[in-house]
Every structure is written in structure tokens, then in C-alpha cells.
Design a binder for these strands. Structure first.
Length: 454
RNA sequence: GGCGCGGUACCCAAGUGGCUUAAGGGGGCGGUUUGCAAAACCGUUAUUUCGCCGGUUCAAAUCCGGCCCGCGCCUCCA
């Protein structure tokens, strides 16, 4: 496959990826609402889109990646009331911890993180436009969207307007399917033509994506759970004002579940990233999440995560062996025709890519040990690692860093004692290394060591 | 109830009409290697089989119909 194909929720099929204005690619991914610590589900989403971003970079596109921050909403306000801290303080702290977690997971920063609280004038302007053209109306200090007047409502989620009408009571709305663009709020609101209030849930993304990427951009992403109502309503609003569906490709990642049920804070059914990242190697976690197709659910299991550490260890060994044999080698960039790239071309198939990399690495590693490897093995190995580390973003430890001198001297010491057949002393040194978290492996070409991977 | 997704070996998981008499990882088993351990290497681990039953086709895990089971969304949610 020589072209990149990706599944588009809007058309329910895989499509050839053709940007609106190549080589530029505009990509907008729904970001977090910072009101608490992040869990594994967040990690999966931002890792998936990070891989997509890195892959598009690899293919030569110039990606502009935007991730919004919903820094004012009901949950943050509730937290504020409980803790006495202002909402801005809560969102700032949560955002910082989110950024730290993402950095550990080797998720690259987006180009911009627009925040709702900094976008109020533009949001008001957008809503005014909708009120003026009759798609929105004022009711008791709040502004609602006239969903019934939206053209082709339900195009993304397949939802039917009639079914929504049967739903909840309408309250101050003209019709139950209408949703709020602006919510009356005397305490935490901003001044507006309709009185004090704050933006509704969906409007921010319509406004911010429009501001940063224009009225039609390439990729809009987020979790599967955002398809309805969030993205559906976003499309409806934007279309009502600009006459365009804002993004060409709508891409959604599957959920992380726990014993079959969706991981969510509201149900207490979740693993926090902070805990996981201190217990397991972040790169093992990243690899584990990429071992399942991005649209499939991942049923999280710590036993599987531990298994993954072993698979990761094999790649880490491979890198060590490769570097040990390639000192004078100047690598050429990874080839688009490589099998691991080809499978990524088909809807970002990361599990297949990892499979291809293993398939490639195993015989090369065996030739390394046998001493029969060729220049081409080194080249292929480099290419595979470039995709593994650069596109999948799973970094492998670099053996022999400056700070590892002490470890190396102990390994050398043990090897000297072994040569002298003083095995008892040699085993003592090995135990000492073991306590330092270092594992020594005696290969046919001499001892090699790795830091233990959790 | 409506809409959507999925059920592949001991576990995880690709594959969605012939290139697959089903990738890859983990685990198991047998062997080589080894001071010991670990690692590594070699071989093996779905062969009327891809939830069940029918159908289409020269050809199906892959398409169609029915059924069973699981999950997500329909309310905040990555």
C-alpha cells in the first residue's frame, strides 16, 4: 500500500487520506477538562493521536496540531466549591500534571493549547452569528441551538432527531433535542449580550478549531465516546454558521475498559496514570496500548502489561546489539517501502507494525549472535528502530550512557572474576548489580547488561 | 428499545474474498548453549479451523441472512 488510508467516522469507511491543502495538515483533537488526575483512557487517546501526528510527519506532511483545554465547566466549578480554590487554579494544576504524564509517555506537545477562558469574545461572536441567522434563541438568560433546524443532523453518529425528541424533558428549551450554547451563570460567568454566563459544552471546539485551523481542516479526533453528542453538535453548530462540516476526517479511538467495563472517573472504575507510571516503565505502557488497533477496545490487565515488558526487553536488547556493531555505520532514513510502514499506511495498524518489526528483528538478532550479519542487517535494523522509536514513539533505553560508568565497571569486574574462575565473587557482583536494578546477560560475544524493565 | 462495534489458539492480538493449509507477542513443551542463573538460538504449540446455523461464490475467518454472547453511545466522559 503506497497511500495512507484512514477510517473516517463521518463516512463509516476507510478512505484515502488527501489533505485539503497539502502538504499542510490541520489536526484538532479534543483535549481534557482539567478537574482531576488523568487516567489510562486519556493516555491511550493522546498516544494514538501522537502516533498519527508522528506518522504524518514521517510521510512528509506539515502538521499543525491543536488540542483544546476546557478550563471552565461544571466539574471544575464543583471542585472549586469543595476545595475553596478558584477554578483557574484547579485547572492550572491539573493541566500541569497532565503535561507531566504526557511527557513521560513521550507524547509530543501540540502546537497550541487554546483555552476556553481565553476565547470568550470569539465564542460570544460565534453564538451571536447563530442567533442572528435564526439557528439559536435566547431563553431565560441562556442561548440554545435549534437542533431541529440543522441540516442533516445526525450525519456523524447516525442518531435520528425523532429519537432525541422522545428523550428528556425540554425545560426552558423550545424542544428537548436543543442544546445550550451559552449557559446563564451569575457567579462564574462572563458578561455577554445575554447577561452573565459561560459557554456550553460543544461551542468551544467549533470556535477554537475555526480560529486556529480555519473553517475546513483535515482531521478532527477524540475518543469514541465523543461522537455523540459532542462532535455531532459541533458539526451542527459550525455548519449552521459557516456552511461547512469543519473537518474532512473524523477519527475516534476506542475505549480502555477494565474487566470489560469502560474506564471512567464517574464510576470509580479506573487506573490513574500517576500510579501506573511510577510502577511500570512508561514506554512499556505505551507499547502495550499500541499493541491493539486504535479503534478496538483495550481491556486493561496488569498481567498483560508485565508480559509486554518482556517483549519490550527484546527490542531493547536488539538495539544494544545493533549499536555495538554499527559504530562506523551512517544510517540512511527509514524507507517508506518497509513492511512496518506499509501496514501503518492501512489505517495506522500499530499492532501489525510491531509484528513486522519483530519478524524483521528476530533473524537479524540471531545473525548478530552467530557473527554472520551483513551491512544490510544493520541497515534494516536501523530502519525498523527508526519507525519503532520515531513513529510509534516507543523509546528504547540507550546502553552505555555517561552515568552508567559505574555499572559498566562492575560488569567488567565480574567478567574478570569469572575468567579467574572465582565464581563466588562473581556472583556477589551480580547480586549487587541485581539490587541496583541491573540484569547481566552473558551472550556468546561477552556480557551485556540492561536496566530491568518493569 | 434505538444506533454502533466486536466474538480468531492457553492468554493478548493482526488479518476482512484467492499472496493465510490464519502475522506478531506472552506462555507451554522438546533441544542447543551455559560454572550457575538469565539471555540467546533451533524446533514445536489453530490443518474439516476463525461464536453458532444457513446462503452467495470456482474460492469466505473475510460477503449476505438469522441466532447466541459481550461492549460502547443514547446523561458528564478520551
Amino acid at each position: 500500500m503506497t497511500e495512507f488510508r484512514i477510517y473516517n467516522t463521518l463516512t463509516s469507511r476507510k478512505e484515502k487520506f488527501v489533505p485539503v491543502d497539502p502538504p499542510k495538515v490541520g489536526m484538532y483533537v479534543c483535549g481534557i477538562t482539567p478537574y482531576g488526575p488523568s487516567h489510562l483512557g486519556h493516555a491511550r487517546c493522546y498516544i494514538v493521536f501522537d502516533v498519527l501526528k508522528k506518522f504524518l510527519d514521517f510521510l512528509g506532511y506539515e502538521v499543525k496540531y491543536i488540542q483544546n483545554i476546557t478550563d471552565i465547566d461544571d466539574k471544575i466549578i464543583k471542585k472549586s466549591a469543595e476545595s475553596g480554590k478558584p477554578p483557574s487554579e484547579i485547572s492550572r494544576l491539573c493541566m500541569e500534571s497532565f503535561m507531566e504524564d504526557m511527557e513521560k509517555l513521550n507524547v509530543s506537545k501540540a502546537d497550541e493549547y487554546p483555552m476556553v477562558s481565553h476565547t470568550i469574545p470569539q465564542i460570544i461572536e460565534f453564538i451571536e452569528g447563530l442567533v442572528e441567522n435564526g439557528m439559536a434563541y435566547l431563553s431565560d438568560g441562556s442561548v440554545y441551538f435549534r437542533t431541529g433546524k440543522a441540516e442533516k443532523y445526525g450525519r456523524l453518529s447516525g442518531r435520528k432527531l425523532e429519537d432525541l425528541k422522545a428523550g428528556e424533558g425540554k425545560g426552558k428549551k423550545e424542544s428537548p433535542e436543543d442544546f445550550s450554547l451559552w449557559k446563564k451563570d451569575e457567579e462564574y460567568g462572563w458578561e455577554s449580550p445575554w447577561g452573565r454566563g459561560r459557554p456550553g459544552w460543544h461551542i468551544e471546539c467549533s470556535v477554537m478549531s475555526h480560529m486556529t485551523l480555519g473553517s475546513v481542516f483535515d482531521i478532527h479526533g477524540g475518543g469514541l465516546d465523543l461522537i455523540f453528542p459532542h462532535h455531532e453538535n459541533e458539526i451542527a453548530q459550525s455548519y449552521a454558521l459557516t456552511g461547512c462540516v469543519p473537518a474532512k476526517y473524523w477519527i475516534h479511538n476506542g475505549m480502555v475498559t477494565l474487566k470489560g467495563d469502560k474506564m471512567a472517573k464517574s464510576t470509580g472504575n479506573f487506573f490513574l496514570l500517576s500510579g501506573l507510571l511510577s510502577e511500570y516503565d512508561p514506554m512499556v505502557l505505551r507499547m502495550y496500548l499500541l499493541r491493539t488497533g486504535y479503534r478496538q477496545p483495550v481491556d486493561f490487565d496488569t498481567d498483560r502489561l508485565s508480559e509486554e515488558a518482556k517483549a519490550y526487553g527484546k527490542l531493547a536488547d536488539f538495539k544494544g546489539e545493533l549499536l555495538a556493531r554499527a559504530e562506523s555505520f551512517s544510517p540512511s532514513p527509514a524507507d517508506r517501502s518497509a513492511s512496518e510502514v506499509k501496514v501503518l499506511m492501512d489505517d495506522l495498524n500499530t499492532p501489525a507494525a510491531i509484528g513486522e518489526i519483530f519478524k524483521k528483528i528476530t533473524p537479524i538478532l540471531s545473525r548478530f549472535y552467530a557473527g554472520t550479519h551483513t551491512e544490510n542487517d544493520i541497515r534494516e535494523g536501523y530502519g525498523a528502530l527508526e519507525i519503532f522509536e520515531g513513529v510509534l514513539g516507543i523509546k528504547l533505553p540507550v546502553p552505555m550512557k555517561e552515568e552508567d560508568r559505574e555499572i559498566q565497571s562492575l560488569v567488567d569486574e565480574r567478567q574478570r572474576l569469572r575468567k579467574e574462575k572465582d565464581f563466588e565473587a562473581a556472583d556477589h557482583v551480580r547480586e549487587k548489580l541485581d539490587r541496583m536494578g541491573v540484569e547481566v546477560k552473558d551472550t556468546p560475544t561477552g556480557p551485556r547488561w540492561t536496566k530491568k524493565i518493569r
